[in-house]
C-alpha cells in the first residue's frame, strides 16, 4: 500500500447529512454516500440539532454498509479512518466521531480528525490540481470565509462574516418570501428568472477589509416586504430576490477578487454549499476569466456536506503521518488555522 493506493474511509456528520465515503489515494472517490435529513427538518423550518443527532445514530451503520457495497471493497481493506472533528453541531459531530474511533480501533488503523472547512476547500482536489498560493472563497449555511493557502495544507483566514453566513441569509430571505426550508435554491432560481431588480444596499465595511456582513441586507429585504404589505402592493418577489442575490454576489466576488490580487494568488477555489448557486458560479467564473486567474469549482454533489471532501482533506495528514489519538475531542469551535499541517 502506497500513498497513491491506500484506502481511506471518511465520515461526516457535522450537521444534517450522514455521509460515508471511501476514497483511494486521497483523490479517487470509490463511494460517497450522503443521506440527507432535509425532509425531516423541513417541517421545523430549519435544522433541529437533537433530531439531527437522533437521525445520525439511526442511519450510521446503514450508510457505512452502503458505502462499502458501492466501493466494492471489504472492511479489512481500509487503511485509515477520517472524520469531521469540527466545526459543527456538537451532538451531531459526536455520532460520527464515536463511530470513526470505534472503526479505527476495530480495524486497527489510524484515525484522522479533520476540519470541516478544510474538507470543503480540498473538495477541489477531487476534481483538479490546486496551485499555491491559492485563495478559497468558502460559502455555506454556516460559513462565509476567504481563506488563503500560501502552500499545501496551511490555512490563513483573511476575511470572514461578522454576522450571518451567506447560506443563512439566503434561508432567512427565502423564509420571508414563504419558500420551504432550505430556500437558497428557490431564491437563486427566482433571481435568475427575473428581469426586474430592486436595488439593495451592499455592505463593504472598511475599505481594506475582507470581512463580510449580511444582516443589514437581510433587514433591507424584510423592510421591503413589510413596505409592500403596508401599502397593499403586490410584492415583486422576483425583483427582490434578484436584488438580494446581486448584492450578495457583488460583495463576495469583489472582495474575493481584491484579496486574490493583494495576496498574489495563482488560483481561486470556490466551495461550500452555496457554491452550488448558479448566479455565484457564473459571476466568479467571468471575473476570474477576465483576470486570467484559474478557478476551480466542485460539482454541486461535492459542494454540499459530504464525506469524500473529508477524505480529501485528511489526505494532507495521512501523507505526513499526522494521526489523531483515540481520545480525540469533537470540537464545535475547531480552528481551521490550527488544523494546518505542521511542516
Amino acid at each position: 500500500m502506497t500513498d497513491k493506493d491506500y484506502l481511506m474511509l471518511a465520515i461526516e456528520t457535522s450537521c444534517d447529512e450522514t455521509s460515508v465515503a471511501i476514497v483511494r489515494g486521497g483523490r479517487e472517490v470509490l463511494a460517497n454516500v450522503v443521506s440527507s435529513q432535509i425532509e425531516t427538518h423541513r417541517r421545523f423550518g430549519g435544522v433541529v440539532p437533537e433530531i439531527a443527532s437522533r437521525k445520525h445514530v439511526e442511519s450510521i451503520t446503514l450508510i457505512l454498509e452502503e458505502a462499502f457495497a458501492k466501493a466494492g471493497v471489504g472492511r479489512g481493506d481500509i487503511d485509515a479512518v477520517a472524520v469531521t472533528q469540527g466545526p459543527g453541531l456538537i451532538g451531531a459531530l459526536l455520532v460520527g466521531v464515536v463511530a470513526a474511533k470505534t472503526l479505527a480501533m476495530a480495524l486497527d488503523v489510524p484515525l484522522i480528525g479533520t476540519h470541516h472547512i478544510a474538507g470543503h476547500i480540498y473538495a477541489n482536489r477531487l476534481i483538479g490540481e490546486i496551485v499555491y498560493p491559492a485563495l478559497a472563497l468558502v460559502v455555506s449555511g454556516g460559513h462565509t470565509e476567504l481563506v488563503l493557502l500560501e502552500r499545501e495544507g496551511v490555512f490563513r483566514i483573511v476575511g470572514r462574516t461578522r454576522d450571518d453566513a451567506v447560506g443563512e441569509a439566503y434561508d432567512k430571505v427565502a423564509r420571508a418570501l414563504s419558500f420551504p426550508y432550505p430556500g437558497g435554491p428557490y431564491v437563486d432560481k427566482l433571481a435568475q428568472a427575473s428581469e426586474e431588480e430592486v436595488e439593495l444596499p451592499r455592505a463593504w465595511l472598511e475599505p481594506d477589509s475582507y470581512d463580510f456582513s449580511f444582516s443589514g441586507l437581510k433587514s433591507a429585504v424584510l423592510a421591503e416586504i413589510n413596505r409592500a404589505k403596508m401599502k397593499g402592493e403586490e410584492l415583486a418577489q422576483g425583483a427582490l430576490a434578484k436584488g438580494f442575490q446581486a448584492s450578495v454576489i457583488d460583495v463576495v466576488t469583489t472582495k474575493a477578487m481584491r484579496a486574490a490580487q493583494a495576496f498574489g494568488v495563482r488560483q481561486m477555489l470556490l466551495c461550500g454549499g452555496v457554491a452550488a448557486n448558479l448566479g455565484l458560479r457564473e459571476r466568479l467564473t467571468a471575473l476570474c476569466a477576465d483576470a486570467g486567474l484559474p478557478l476551480l469549482i466542485p460539482p454541486p454533489s461535492l459542494c454540499s456536506d459530504n464525506a469524500a471532501m473529508i477524505a480529501a482533506a485528511a489526505d494532507l495528514k495521512w501523507r505526513r503521518r499526522a494521526f489523531t489519538p483515540l481520545d480525540m475531542v469533537a470540537w464545535p469551535q475547531l480552528s481551521l488555522e490550527e488544523w494546518s499541517v505542521q511542516d
Binding site: I60, T61, L64, E65, V98, A99, T102, A106
Partner: peptide, 9 residues
Amino acid sequence: SAAKTLAWT
C-alpha cells in the same frame, strides 16, 4: 453509536 459500529464492523 460505538456498539452499533463495533457490532457491524
